[in-house]
Amino acid sequence: MKLHEIVETLALTVRAGRRSLDTEVTGGYAADLLSCAMAGAEPGNLWLTLQGHLNVVAVATLNELAGVIVTEGKPVSPDALAKADEEGLPILTTTLGTFEVAGRLWALLGATR
């Protein structure tokens, strides 16, 4: 499923990386610890996290993730947004919690990881 379809279905707010919404999403990964995302998230995954700071962009780009969803209405720092735009990394936000976003995404994508 393309990222823009997910953005529409889950009513996510696009905060950065608008030009990269055509990416194919391979699955989801939920973690707030950068070390876990670094070790566990796979290329093309959409990363669900509470963290909205600069290092999230670094980890997501390194792992070639499809994008980041910052949940629970958490703020994203301006430097993170600027860097994400530069890298073409979509940063999406929602007021929904991680459990609910993961639940809905899982239902959309089926039993991929």
Partner: peptide, 19 residues
């Protein structure tokens, strides 16, 4: 007092705190 505002360094965040 703003929700989500934090001055915690990365290593504290990796401990699961300071968001």
């Amino acid at each position: 007092m703003t929700p989500g505002y934090s001055t915690a360094p990365d290593w504290i965040r990796e401990m699961g705190f300071g968001a």
